[in-house]
Every structure is written in C-alpha cells, then in structure tokens.
C-alpha cells in the first residue's frame, strides 16, 4: 500500500518537475513546482519524517515559492513573449549531462539489488527535537546567525538608492 503510494507520488513529482523546467512562463513553472513539492512532502511523510514534510510544505511550497512569485511580479517578468526561452540547442548540453548522469546511475543501479528496508524506525518528533537541540545546538545557533546575515544582506541589496 505504502509502496504503491510512493511510486504514484514519485511519478507526480517527476512529471511536475518536468513540466516546471520546460514551462515557457515563470509563473507556470512556479505553480508546477509547488505541485511537485507537495508530492515530495508526502514522500517525506511516507519515509517517516513528518516534521520535514511539514517544513517542506510551509517553507518551500509556502515561503520560498511565494518569494519567487513576488519577485517575478515585482520585476514584471510574467510576459513570455518578452522573455527569451531556451532554444533547442540550449537543451543539448543539458540533455547530454542528464544522460551521462542517468547512465551512471543506471550502471550503479544494475549492480545493486533492491532490498526492502529491514525494519522501519519511525523517528518521533521528540527524538528529532532532542537530537537537534542537544547534539546540534551550535549548528542551530550558526544557522540562525546565517539567516540574520541573509536578512541584512537582502535588505542592503534591495534598498533603493
């Protein structure tokens, strides 16, 4: 049951992403991507990470993608006819790279036999939080500092002179 769900969600994610990266309009790309990220959040949940799934929805699909939308609208980039979209030639190196990567992964995959997870350990929120604040306290502080710096930097870059 869970496995079926996983494969369906994986398909949704891949298709959504595929549409997102080939969309002619940036706004459409964002919407496809939000869709794909929802599916990804569900996958996270399936993998026993409810907290990460929640953050995925809140931060990625909610905040970051909205930020993108804001910028697109602020800069008035929503007109596909004024934007250059990649020609077919531009896709060639990308496709080559993707093929190489995919082939490598395929080669690696061929040697590896899928083994189901032996025993699933769901990670409770309590366990997650304990690890986060006890073992990685310093990292939390550093990340908060980093967010502060990003804030200052963004304000500095964005102010009008």
């Amino acid at each position: 049951m869970e496995a079926t769900l996983f494969y369906i969600l994986a398909l949704v994610t891949l298709v959504g992403t595929g549409f997102a990266i080939t969309a002619r309009q940036a706004v459409r790309a964002i919407v496809y991507l939000v869709n794909s990220f929802f599916a990804l959040a569900l996958i996270f949940y399936l993998l026993g990470a409810p907290l990460v799934a929640a953050f995925e929805v809140i931060i990625y699909a909610g905040a970051i993608m909205v930020l993108f939308l804001f910028v697109i609208m602020m800069l008035d980039l929503g007109h596909p006819e004024r934007m250059k979209s990649p020609r077919l030639v531009d896709w060639i190196p990308a496709l080559v790279l993707v093929l190489v990567t995919a082939a490598s992964v395929g080669v690696l995959a061929a040697q590896h036999h899928a083994q189901p997870l032996a025993a699933f350990h769901g990670i409770s929120v309590r366990q997650f939080s304990q690890t986060l604040f006890q073992r990685y306290g310093v990292a939390v502080e550093l990340v908060s500092l980093q967010l502060l710096f990003a804030l200052v930097g963004a304000i500095y870059l964005g102010r009008r002179r």
Binding site: T17, I21, S85, L95
Partner: peptide, 11 residues
Amino acid sequence: MGLACTIAWRA
C-alpha cells in the same frame, strides 16, 4: 532535472 534546468535556462 534540476541540473538540466539550471544549464538550459541561461536566459
């Protein structure tokens, strides 16, 4: 796919 997107959308 992300990589392809980054490379292809240079415009």
